[in-house]
């Protein structure tokens, strides 16, 4: 899987909403998944996420599935372990020494879908938010000094460069015979052989990049101007407001 950012330029309700509002929305979701430990509410939340992805974010079902399938695989293993390890009372099924309890099944389902829901909401956020807008909201709305916020651009900018470099190093070393030797010690050596050139190539650029940035006035003033601006929209405020209200109500209901 590539580390390059997964923003998909499209038009949709979620695309139009600014990143901060979406973060608020994500936080609501996190709170909600956290207060329930049984399957039904978690399944409902997950369904809501899927609908949001398809209806509000204009993402195709296949895109969502492709985005979460690794996580889904992971969850299956997780589900099994949870089912077996979490204690319970009502026996549903048993094979030999393995006993499956209703409570553990319920709990495992809940936790598994908790993970999938969080993951889908994050996928929606990522696919609908231009990284530029994220950085700009950090500085314009959250008042984080742009010198620091900008590091996110630098990081994202160099991901593809490093990835192609990593590919080349892998091939170059294979040709030298790396990988022919067996044994744990050699495997560890190989890790070093791979990581060092990658790291050195990257660090060699650091000084040049920093100098270029400085000579282009980076950090010259405490603030700067922007050719893009971020505005909270009415739609966004309504959307976030609705979610906050819903979350507060459900939390109150749950703990009364």
């Amino acid at each position: 899987m590539s580390l390059a950012f997964q923003y998909h330029e499209k038009k949709s309700f979620m695309h139009r909403i600014d990143p901060i509002t979406k973060v608020v929305w994500m936080m609501c979701i996190s709170v909600l998944v956290f207060i329930y430990e049984s399957a039904i509410p978690q399944l409902i939340l997950f369904a809501v996420m899927l609908l949001t992805a398809i209806l509000l974010a204009n993402l195709s079902f296949t895109f969502v599935i492709r985005g979460i399938w690794i996580m889904a695989l992971f969850s299956i293993g997780f589900f099994i372990i949870q089912t077996l390890l979490v204690p319970g009372e009502t026996v549903v099924y048993s094979i030999g020494p393995l006993v499956i309890h209703k409570e553990s099944l319920d709990f495992a389902t809940a936790i598994t879908f908790r993970i999938l829901t969080i993951f889908t909401s994050s996928l929606i956020f990522v696919a609908t938010s231009d990284p530029r807008d994220i950085v700009i909201s950090l500085t314009q709305k959250l008042k984080i000094p742009y010198r620091y916020a900008y590091s996110l651009f630098v990081a994202l900018r160099f991901v593809p460069t490093l990835e192609s470099e990593a590919k080349i190093i892998e091939a170059a070393q294979k040709i030298r015979g790396v990988g022919k030797q067996k044994g744990l010690k050699n495997k560890i050596e190989n890790l070093k052989r791979f990581s060092l050139p990658l790291l050195m190539g990257a660090i060699r650029r650091v000084q040049v990049t920093a100098n270029t940035m400085e000579s282009k006035g980076y950090g010259a003033y405490a603030d700067r101007t922007y050719i893009r601006t971020i505005n909270f929209s009415k739609q966004g405020i309504l959307f976030a407001g609705a979610w906050i209200t819903l979350t507060v109500c459900l939390v109150v209901l749950r703990f009364i």
């Binding site: 530029r132 651009f153 900018r157 460069t161 990049t209 270029t212 940035m213 010259a220 700067r224």
Partner: peptide
């Protein structure tokens, strides 16, 4: 590769004047 620190061409060109508060 080392001297371009933005993701989009437009931002790269705007980078210096933005920093200089144009």
């Amino acid at each position: 590769d080392a001297q371009l620190c933005n993701i989009y061409v437009e931002d790269e060109v705007a980078f210096a004047p933005e920093n200089l508060k144009v």
